[in-house]
């Protein structure tokens, strides 16, 4: 059985989850054909982000990214271990940026303005990987998905119940299962067929940041396992297509605060 050949997408060069996944897959013998990294300095992307999140949120995020990279999930402010840091530490991964990682391991890195750009689509079509593993970079359009053939994503919530953004947060707030869903991306919002779901324990999470990081870690583990089985198709289980449900969007500040309060109270109650 030949090892699976994959392309990984990344939202930017400094994406720690993307780099961690690339490293884990490499260690598992997966053939990484290249990384499609979306350029941060891109007016179109900036405009989309501002529309989705609002200008102040985007500027705050940019400030955080530039001033405190490596601060992790924010769990530190609660004096708590950071799940992502722990995960990286457990696997002995030191992140230094995708570009450096690619140079070190002789993997091509393609910087694109947009994953749906003709250049990105042509690249993925030419490589023809067994799968594109999505770890960020914006909403994918049909042309990219068709060119890729198969795009795997770790959705941070249970499907079909929680579609859309901030899925781990919405699942916790709405009392749904704490579950990562590995599924195929299709032209809808989280409506592609489900491959496998992975439950995770968030009972000890004391903040939204910690919850999110816990979900990210479980997503990386899930993707690693599913991609590892790509060579033997029968091991990948396909569920029926997800039924549409009300889409989730980025949480309003007040709702995020509400969840933060609930998590802190629950965590304190459980003695975490």
């Amino acid at each position: 059985m030949n090892p699976a050949r994959v392309v990984i997408t990344a939202s930017h060069d400094r994406s720690e989850p993307s780099e961690a996944l690339a490293e884990l897959l490499r260690r598992d013998g997966i053939q990484i054909e290249g990384i499609l990294s979306v350029s941060v300095l891109n007016l179109w992307r900036f405009r989309t982000l501002v529309r989705q999140r609002g200008l102040s949120a985007v500027l705050r995020r940019a400030r955080e990214a530039f001033t405190s990279r490596g601060a992790g999930s924010g769990a530190a402010k609660h004096d708590r271990p950071d799940p992502l840091r722990e995960f990286l530490g457990r696997h002995g991964i030191k992140t230094r940026g995708l570009r450096r990682w690619c140079r070190l391991h002789r993997v091509p890195v393609w910087n694109v303005a947009d994953l749906n750009s003709p250049a990105a689509i042509a690249t993925v079509r030419a490589v023809a990987p067994d799968a594109v593993v999505y770890t960020g970079g914006g909403i994918l359009r049909r042309q990219f998905i068709d060119a890729a053939g198969r795009v795997l994503n770790a959705h941070a919530g249970p499907l079909p119940e929680i579609r859309g953004m901030n899925a781990a947060e919405w699942a916790a707030l709405l009392g749904e299962r704490s579950e990562i869903t590995i599924h195929h991306i299709d032209a809808g919002i989280d409506t592609g067929s489900v491959v496998r779901a992975y439950a995770y324990d968030c009972s000890a999470c004391m903040s939204v940041s910690e919850l999110r990081a816990t979900a990210v870690v479980r997503g990386l583990e899930g993707l690693r396992e599913v991609v590892g089985q790509l060579g033997c198709r029968e091991a990948v289980q396909y569920a029926e297509d997800a039924r549409p449900s009300r889409q989730c969007f980025i949480m309003a500040a007040a709702i995020r605060e509400l969840l933060d309060r609930r998590l802190a109270a629950r965590g304190a109650g459980s003695g975490a």
Partner: peptide, 9 residues
């Protein structure tokens, strides 16, 4: 549905 409350907020 808190998703609607979030939208309104």
């Amino acid at each position: 549905d808190l998703r609607l409350v979030s939208a309104a907020a």
